[in-house]
Design a protein around this nucleic acid. Sequence first.
DNA 1: GAGGCAAACTCGTATAGACGAGTAGGTGGG
DNA 2: CCCACCTACTCGTCTATACGAGTTTGCCTC
Lengths: 262, 262
Amino acid sequence: MPAIPSGALGALDPTSDRAVFRQIADQLRDAIDKGRFSEGDKLPSETELVEHYGVSRMTVRNSLSVLQGEGLVFSEHGKGVFVRPRPPVRRLASDRFARRHREQGKSAFTVEADAAGSHPTVDSLEIKEERPTQDIATRLGGPRRVLARHRRYLLDGRPVEFATSYLPLDIARGTQIAEPNPGPGGIYARLEELGHRLDHFEEEIRARMPAPHEVRSLRLAAGVPVIHLIRTAYDTEGRAVEVCDTVMAADAYVLAYQLPAT
Amino acid sequence: MPAIPSGALGALDPTSDRAVFRQIADQLRDAIDKGRFSEGDKLPSETELVEHYGVSRMTVRNSLSVLQGEGLVFSEHGKGVFVRPRPPVRRLASDRFARRHREQGKSAFTVEADAAGSHPTVDSLEIKEERPTQDIATRLGGPRRVLARHRRYLLDGRPVEFATSYLPLDIARGTQIAEPNPGPGGIYARLEELGHRLDHFEEEIRARMPAPHEVRSLRLAAGVPVIHLIRTAYDTEGRAVEVCDTVMAADAYVLAYQLPAT
DNA sequence: GAGGCAAACTCGTATAGACGAGTAGGTGGG
DNA sequence: CCCACCTACTCGTCTATACGAGTTTGCCTC
């Protein structure tokens, strides 16, 4: 039984000065790109690759770890190494916080997920009064203490993002914003009810590799970066009334913005 | 001479079921986070770590490769392993293509870089007529052939992004847009002169690990993701007149957007 | 037939050793 | 004084081996 699909993988070039493990990684990557292994498919086992190429197992593992680092494959202990499927991505539109989307009753996350036919969950809700970090304090205009709302979002059981909202205590203390359920329309609706009519948002976007706690919290596979989004909400008086710090699994999102050409 | 700063690294916990190479990675990560090694500092050599922990060299290398994958350190053959410095980031504001920024003579990239005191270069300029990919064709409304402008941007000699603009041939052929130097204000200025008054842009943002050719082209260190940005420019008649596909080194950028709360 | 158990397979971790190749510093000769 | 070379040190690549732990399969027993 040809465990390796015939023709899927070639031979090594001993005259090349490219390292053997890189050549093997190249061939596997190429085979994946060309569709000879498709999403979810099991790659040949380490033992099979060892026999096919006539190299030691550590060399094969080195090749596979290259592909893992590129986010192309993932491994499961006892099962094998598989081509990483691209999960369905959630598209975040730049008007997702527009007032008109707030009229209904549910949160932006829930509405979107329902529309996409997936099952949304919110998790690890924690609400505390804290001393803000220097960065958060600066963005909020320097309050000594803030209300922090930590939460994690899951789609169909998969964690996809976690976020913390920071609000100046003088705005949020004692209001429904400090409650686990902020009510219909979320905290932006409550802020407007409290007289802070929202004017605009500023979002900063970075991408980087996750810290270990982010890998755990989002159950990230190797080779999956995170998108780090920091949003500041300003009211019509120019005051920053909320900062939301969000970390998203990069393979689950595409962010979409519409910009005027003015 | 204590090659390892005293107290910087602790001992292994043999009772822990956490793998030895992970424990070592944890301690190094912790030491970096706590500033016991700062940006650019050389970590203890593999040999020193081997002696300090009493493990084999492959185990130490495994630890270091974990940190490389996280983007925390990089290695230089013959020199050592170093804490990766965070390079200065370029902030891309969402109004960077506003008409008012186009009045001067220079391109957006050049203006920004000069303002930041860095030396900008454009590179690998290539202009071709091509058959568009399915995706590009769809975004542009289905033209059979397009003009493609490939280019790479460098700051102080470091490549930071490469981009390709696609324009329908019926718009761009024979105009200055098809020339290596598109003239003052860039191709958006030319498009408006040609009667395509720009109305708005749509930008899609993804983050992922780079493909091998992207690693080469941007000289990316291990553990640095890329930001993939696809911008479509629409004229006042609702026609998509340009698609720009950009890949950026994620450690060199922060994207900033301003959104109305409407 | 159902359950349990063992074998065979998978990847994970770790050791010990070898050689190669790039770098830096010192030492000697010109 | 400067250059060339040698040496010591660095990380890069690769082999061979061993055992552990999770999964799957199939057989054997009841």
